[in-house]
Design a protein around this nucleic acid. Structure first.
Length: 578
RNA sequence: GCCCCCAUCGACUAGCGGCCCAGGUCGCCACCCUUUCAAGGUGGUAGCGCGGGUUCGAAUCCCGCUGGGGGCACCA
């Protein structure tokens, strides 16, 4: 019978055994924003400059009046290229740069039946109606004519034809990579790879005070281990401080921002709404009057996240921002900022958070939460990846086991769930077991040796290798090995077990005579012994098992005995008698 | 407190108005296999949060409620 083990085996074999560590093709560098280089909109802006300082959102009770006065601007004509994009119906725009879904769902049972794992190219599946519900033209906030940014015009040109997708994963280096964050990274990576696009790694270290040394290396190590390769060098948000400040200065000059206590704040539009068609959440709208004037640059001169991040998205030519849904309320602010700077916002996809089994946000008390911990616990990358991908996404109602390649091939952003998902450790364990069992024995043995080495066990690698086949079917995590097969490497304790000393004595005698000392002949001898004593196999074997392994649960008795060797086996038996 | 979002078995999900007295997977239970434990096989358990609509027909559309989540920083 073709069983999941074989299934998973095929899945694994389709993939090179080593994770892809390469850094990907080097990107052609995009010219950076030539800051302080206002386009033809500058005059308009100057003309429309508003009172330079205004109270913060929600602070002044009389603010309504102020808004009335300030807010009543007339709508400007937009530049041609921009209109082109804006005037296209939203759903169509949402599809730009996204290849149609190319794959037919393939029921898993085909795999079970042992059919070759091949994804069929079929006609494009129609997209789910999500975005279609939002056909209404996006209501633009009233806004001044933006300053032109030449590089974004290039991007627009590409957009209009068919833009390759470019996404980014942007963790802040404040510690180990949280599994929820990694899931976001997984979605980004899956999407980018599936679309033949690029996946960039950006370190958002604007808040230097919280930066943790080592974290940057740690993050990269975790991603690499999981097999998430990024394109080009990773970048640091801090490196663009100067560019950000330049833009802020220009925004200041244009009256789009103002100073406030030494900081620079961006003036959000007062009326209208800011909206976008979120790939996972559909239409999202925010009344502009709710938007706070965000701080762009702190009084100490450092740009804030809400400023630096969208600017970098623009400079990097990010087409799709896929991030946690805790960012939704930042999005309208960032969209306004991006437009103020004359650029076109990317597509947004806000993925739901990951909860613990109790429905609360996943945290330490639920168990492992960082990639490092999962690694140390003996989970294997493709299993974790498979599991993470299925957290909030499913290709269909049937398929669960998918290799990294298959995940890439089948992933689609539109199918990610909009409600949060609970992290089920039991299911992860099961899935890890599936992948572990699917490994060719030698690879399995290798993984075991590596894992034990990492965990600080200095056990004989050769013996570990020999023990590997005995445990492969039986443990779900590599870290289960010591408890399960540790008796091969060290002394055992018989505390709490009372043994039938008669059986032990008989076994001692029988094993002393077995020749050769192999599983096969040991089995013969012990079965004969059971017969002689008139015992059922389990009745006879269990005391021996305990004497030899110190546990009621162990790998196969005969194989274990063989590996232990006659001498040590006899020692343990005689020790058990006294 | 204010704003926003979400809601199918215990968990992850399929479902896009009739194919659904709701399908798959994990878990759980039983049986089979069996030297223990697993693995594997077979069968089973369990769900559309509640209340109103719309419709010939609703898990699917609308409204309200309830429950859960997220956001409201010179954090990211």
């Amino acid at each position: 019978m073709a069983e999941p083990r074989e299934v998973a085996q095929r899945l694994l074999l389709r993939r090179a055994s080593a994770p892809r560590f390469h850094e990907g093709p080097q990107l052609r560098r995009r010219p950076r924003l030539a800051a302080g280089e206002p386009g033809d909109g500058a005059h308009e802006l100057a003309r429309r400059r508003r009172a330079s300082v205004r109270p913060r959102r929600g602070v002044a009770p009389e603010r309504r009046d102020v808004e009335r006065v300030v807010g009543g601007r007339d709508e400007m004509e937009r530049p041609a290229h921009e209109r082109r994009l804006h005037d296209r119906p939203a759903p169509e725009r949402a599809r730009q740069g996204v290849a149609p879904e190319r794959l037919q769902p393939r029921p898993e049972r085909h795999v079970r039946r042992g059919h070759p794992l091949r994804l069929e190219r079929g006609h494009a599946l129609d997209r789910p109606g999500r975005t279609q519900a939002c056909a209404a033209e996006e209501q633009l906030p009233e806004q001044e004519r933006p300053v032109q940014l030449p590089e974004r015009q290039d991007a627009h040109a590409a957009y209009a034809i068919r833009m390759a997708v470019r996404v980014r994963f942007a963790p802040s280096p404040t510690g180990m990579l949280h599994i929820g964050g990694v899931r976001t990274a997984v979605f980004n990576w899956l999407f980018a790879r599936g679309e033949g696009g690029e996946f960039k790694l950006r370190i958002e270290n604007t808040d230097t005070s919280r930066e943790v040394a080592e974290a940057v290396e740690q993050i990269q190590e975790s991603l690499r281990w999981l097999g998430l390769d990024w394109d080009g060098e990773h970048t640091f948000q801090l490196d663009r401080m100067d560019d950000c400040r330049d833009v802020a200065t220009r925004l200041l000059e244009e009256g789009k921002a103002y100073e406030d206590d030494g900081a620079i704040r961006f003036r959000m539009p007062d009326t209208g709404t800011t909206a976008w068609d979120d790939v996972v959440r559909d239409r999202v709208e925010f009344p502009n009057e709710q938007l706070e004037d965000v701080v762009l640059v702190r009084s100490d001169g450092r740009p804030t996240y809400n400023f630096a991040s969208p600017m970098e998205d623009v400079w990097d030519g990010i087409t799709h921002v896929i991030r946690g849904d805790d960012h939704v309320s930042n999005t309208p602010k960032q969209i306004n900022l991006i437009r103020a700077v004359g650029a076109e916002p990317p597509e947004y996809a806000h993925v739901p958070s990951v909860l613990g089994t109790d429905g609360k946000k996943l945290s330490k008390r639920h168990g492992a939460v960082s990639v490092e911990e999962f690694r140390a616990d003996g989970y294997v990358p493709p299993a974790l990846l498979n599991f993470l991908a299925l957290l909030g996404w499913a290709p269909d109602g049937e398929t669960t086991i998918m290799s990294p390649d298959e995940l890439v091939a089948r992933f689609s952003l539109e199918r990610v769930q909009s409600s949060p998902a609970a992290f089920d450790f039991q299911k992860l364990d099961w899935m890890n077991g599936v992948y572990l069992r699917a490994l060719p024995v030698d690879e399995y043995a290798h993984a075991l040796v590596l894992h034990l080495g990492e965990r600080g066990y200095d056990w004989d690698a050769e013996l570990v290798r020999k023990a590997a086949p005995l445990v492969q079917e039986k443990i779900e995590k590599l870290s289960d090995f010591p408890a399960f097969a540790g008796f091969l490497f060290g002394d055992v304790s018989l505390d709490g077990h009372s043994l039938d000393s008669n059986v032990i004595a008989e076994a001692e005698r029988a094993l002393g005579a077995v020749e050769p000392f192999t599983a096969e002949s040991i089995e013969q001898a012990l079965r004969g012994l059971a017969d002689r004593l008139g015992l059922k196999p389990r009745e006879a074997f269990q005391p021996i098992r305990i004497a030899v392994t110190g546990s009621k649960v162990s790998p196969g008795l005969f194989e274990s005995l063989e590996l232990l060797g006659r001498e040590r086996a006899l020692e343990r038996l005689s020790a058990a008698r006294s």
